[in-house]
Design a protein around this nucleic acid. Structure first.
Lengths: 114, 114
DNA sequence: GTGTCTACTATACATTTTGATAGTAGTATA
DNA sequence: TATACTACTATCAAAATGTATAGTAGACAC
């Protein structure tokens, strides 16, 4: 990398990604959705330890940021489904890079920060 | 993606990455180091708003996780330098993926989560 | 009309993370 | 010897994040 201003310009977009997917349950949710789990209760059951409050909140964040969308399954049914938007799917590349690095790291290093 | 167990196996390595670089100042620090800024005071000056307490803590986390290393510049000098290890450098790919996605996202969407 | 399921919301609390401020030990400089 | 610089550490407060628990409103099943 050349000069520090150029370096610095990389920081905000990278932090955006972290803001979007960095809270405790977002990765779990996005991966579940990418794996054909769509309804609130299904997510609640698949994601061990999550409370409805957190699930609801994280879903809302993701929806607000257009990574997922919420649709009624059929009118008057009180059932909804969540699914990844195109933006959400496009995170695949980021996840793949993290997965590759993370697996490699686990094999080589691994000390917990806290 | 095929079955949910396979999906789930992706989660821990991805969360490792987030644990390692997800706290408030880690990206700033790693990018500064990748850009030839090496000493405590230099980092303190370049990274706007960071307190010595946080800088110290984040450097220690990163060192503990072998993403950076700390070396004395010369013996008895009370000056040190921090630099990326090979593991630290290997994050480049992850950062590149996040940067690309982040820039694209900024151009297309962008609503703040909180 | 009672119970059950879905999809949540509300309230309060606990924990974690970050910030503000001041201080310290060692070396170098005038 | 006094001042300043490097590289931190300590203490406490504030803010952000997450948890526990209970409750609600609509639909459906018997």
């Amino acid at each position: 990398m050349k000069n520090h201003e150029e370096c610095k310009s990389h920081i905000p977009p990278i932090k955006d990604v972290l803001d979007l997917i960095g809270s405790k349950w977002k990765v779990d949710i996005i991966i579940a959705l990418s794996c054909d789990i769509h309804r609130f209760n299904e997510l609640e059951r698949q994601i061990e330890g999550i409370s409805p409050r957190m699930l609801s909140k994280e879903l809302k964040d993701l929806e607000l940021n257009r990574l997922i969308q919420r649709d009624e399954i059929s009118p008057f049914s009180n059932t909804f489904k969540y699914s990844l938007t195109e933006h959400g799917w496009s995170l695949r590349e980021v996840f793949r890079a993290m997965l590759t690095w993370g697996i490699d790291y686990r094999n080589k290093v691994m000390v917990k920060t806290n």
